[in-house]
Simulated assay, not measured.
Amino acid sequence: MKKISIFLAGIAFLLLAACGSSDSNGSDDNAAGGASKLEELQENGTVTVGFANEAPYAYEEDGELKGAAVDIATAVFAELGVDNVESQLADFSQLIPGVQAGQFDVVTAGMAIQPGRCENALFGEPEMQYGEGLVVQAGNPHGIESYKDIADNPDITVVVMEGATEIGFLESEGVDPNQITTAPDIASTFSAVQSGRADATTGTEMTVRMAFDSFDSDAIELVESFEQPDIEGVPSYGAAAFSLNNEELRDAYNEKLAELKENGTVEELLEANGFSAESNSVPTDGVTTEQVCSGEAF
């Protein structure tokens, strides 16, 4: 009886070991006996990217995926031998949980690198940098030209896209959390200001400016005199984000990204999407992801 018990215990141990050696989505670079995520993508020739429908970073138009972050990622993966790019739309706040859960292989949303986010995702090197923008009701009745102006008037409400860095920026400038509401996307934040449900909305400058141009409403206006906040995280540095399991994939991506920066491809793609190659690009010898994740860049 004792020998049978030992035998059964050994079988149970082997089964547990086998279960523990495989990743839930098959994407762990260190999965025993299996192909790495990079090899898997190269073999299949397809990468799935997660995005949040935010122009000009990553968005759908007439069924086509567009945007600076998408174009850069597409160029990098082509260099890695992965030519087909598929996409999956998600709320911005669900992008990092989504890539960790294996719903997509990489986040291409121009997502700002932040120390807190670095704990939950592997960021590639910076692909772009950008500041903030502000939209208010027509005539700017509250005279809002900075985040501090919002903080100084507790009657002002500001709506921000869920999961966006601007929530933290506003609070850093003294805005009471009770003054801040959220909406699932940029269009919804603009609608809230247009209808009077909020006094202002904020987001990255390029997103706000492009959304304002396309929204085409006399009920709102873009604050051209907006004062950029002097806080940690501004300017923001946008990059691709990967699962914590996929370090090899992230490193391979960085290697090709550096080559595309050096030959001018990244600057060309930024300009093609309305960015400035001079003010929005990040050179290979500029700020690094390690510096941003550690807080040294600010």
Rank of each mutant, 00 (worst) to 15 (best):
D185N: 15
V223L: 09
A187I: 09
P229F: 05
L170Q: 11
K66W: 04
S191M: 15
E278H: 01
Q88G: 06
L14D: 06
G20N: 13
I113G: 11
A69I: 00
A121E: 10
S243R: 05
L14E: 09
V49S: 02
E205D: 15
D216A: 15
E259L: 08
G131R: 11
D105N: 12
T289W: 07
I144M: 10
Q94T: 12
V292S: 03
F7T: 04
E271R: 14
L122I: 12
A12T: 05
T48P: 01
E60A: 13
S279W: 04
I113K: 11
E171P: 04
T181N: 10
E262C: 06
T48S: 13
D149C: 10
S146T: 00
N120L: 15
A200G: 04
E86P: 01
T181D: 12
L270S: 12
Q137H: 02
F7L: 15
V106A: 14
K37G: 06
F215H: 05
F7C: 11
I144A: 10
L8V: 12
C118G: 08
E125R: 03
Y253D: 07
N178C: 00
T284N: 13
E221G: 14
D71E: 14
D83L: 02
G33T: 01
A198F: 11
A35M: 15
P235W: 08
P115Y: 04
M128N: 06
T157V: 06
G238F: 01
E39K: 07
P283V: 06
E247C: 03
D91K: 06
T182W: 03
A252Q: 01
E259V: 10
G63M: 10
M161D: 03
K256P: 01
A192V: 04
F212S: 00
T289P: 00
G50Q: 05
G163K: 04
S93E: 10
F242G: 08
G50S: 14
E119R: 14
Q100I: 03
S87L: 05
E166Q: 15
P126G: 06
A241G: 09
L260G: 03
L14I: 14
F298E: 14
E278R: 07
L80G: 03
A90Y: 13
S22V: 15
I11C: 13
D149N: 09
L249M: 11
F13R: 00
A69F: 08
A52R: 10
F212N: 01
F13N: 09
P115W: 02
